[in-house]
């Protein structure tokens, strides 16, 4: 233990907030460095020994995590001021002290844990699903060209982490903007052979409150997306579909 204590330290500052109503404050921790540490490992170290760097006992940090391989979308947080996934944030690539804060565009539950229900509600609003008749046997699905699959597959990789909302200047308290992820789903379902039949419904929702027009092309979303989803392409595509629907929808029904 002595040599570990004498070894390299990782300094981590965490923004704490006990309940949604209480004020936030910062706590600093000094952890033992190990190779290939990520931010999740830091938070686990703190949970095992919740003592601040000035020796004060505290509580373990509440945070969301699950898969730890950047596919469940749970552990999005601000790390050194940037929205990203904690599991893939390697300590050696971060400037110290590492500052960890909850996302700011969603209500804080406690510490780093936030409530992203807004995104799931938005998915309902735009009807992000294929309305199948039922799960009983109705034979094969529609044929799809590999080209469509290759366009659709990256979009269906969206993990609803919320990073694209977090970095978007248009997502804030004065604005109901649903965020890039949602419109990318609209594009996905509108490109599917069955989903296409209900494209107008999704487009109407995309033109409603918090809809696509609130996008102001800052294009931060595409840079922050951990899955490399072409969000700006999706926004542009849905924009085009939407105004065509608005202009000509009433003509062709």
């Amino acid at each position: 233990m002595a040599e570990a204590a004498a070894g390299k330290k990782v300094i981590v500052k965490v923004k704490r907030q006990a309940t949604p109503k209480e004020a936030a404050h910062w706590e600093e921790f000094a952890l033992n460095w190990r190779p290939s540490m990520n931010v999740i490992i830091c938070l686990r170290d703190i949970a095992e020994n919740p003592v601040t760097s000035d020796g004060k006992p505290t509580t373990p940090i509440t945070y969301d995590s699950n898969c730890l391989e950047e596919i469940c979308g749970s552990c999005a947080m601000l790390i050194n001021g940037r929205a990203r996934m904690a599991c893939s944030a390697l300590v050696d690539s971060l400037e110290q002290p590492i500052r960890i804060e909850p996302l700011t565009k969603f209500p804080v539950v406690r510490d780093l844990s936030v409530d992203r229900q807004f995104m799931f509600e938005s998915l309902k609003r735009v009807k992000a699903w294929i309305p199948i008749d039922g799960t009983y046997d109705l034979g094969e699905g529609p044929r799809m060209s590999p080209e469509v699959q290759e366009k659709g597959y990256p979009l269906s990789n969206c993990i609803t982490c919320g990073n694209c909302l977090e970095v978007c200047p248009q997502v804030n308290d004065h604005n109901g903007f649903m965020g890039a992820a949602i419109f990318s789903q609209v594009r996905l379902f509108n490109m599917h052979p069955t989903g296409k039949m209900h494209a107008a419904e999704r487009l109407k929702a995309a033109m409603g409150h918090g809809g696509i027009e609130d996008c102001a092309n800052a294009q931060n979303c595409v840079k922050a997306c951990p899955k490399g989803i072409p969000l700006t392409e999706s926004l542009a595509e849905v924009n085009r579909e939407a105004w065509r629907q608005a202009l000509f929808g009433w003509l062709v029904g």
Binding site: L138, M144, P146, Q149, F189
Partner: peptide, 12 residues
């Protein structure tokens, strides 16, 4: 088939 109908982006 069911998953395909639900829109899973299976490779083609």
């Amino acid at each position: 088939d069911l998953l395909d109908r639900m829109g899973v982006m299976f490779n083609r």
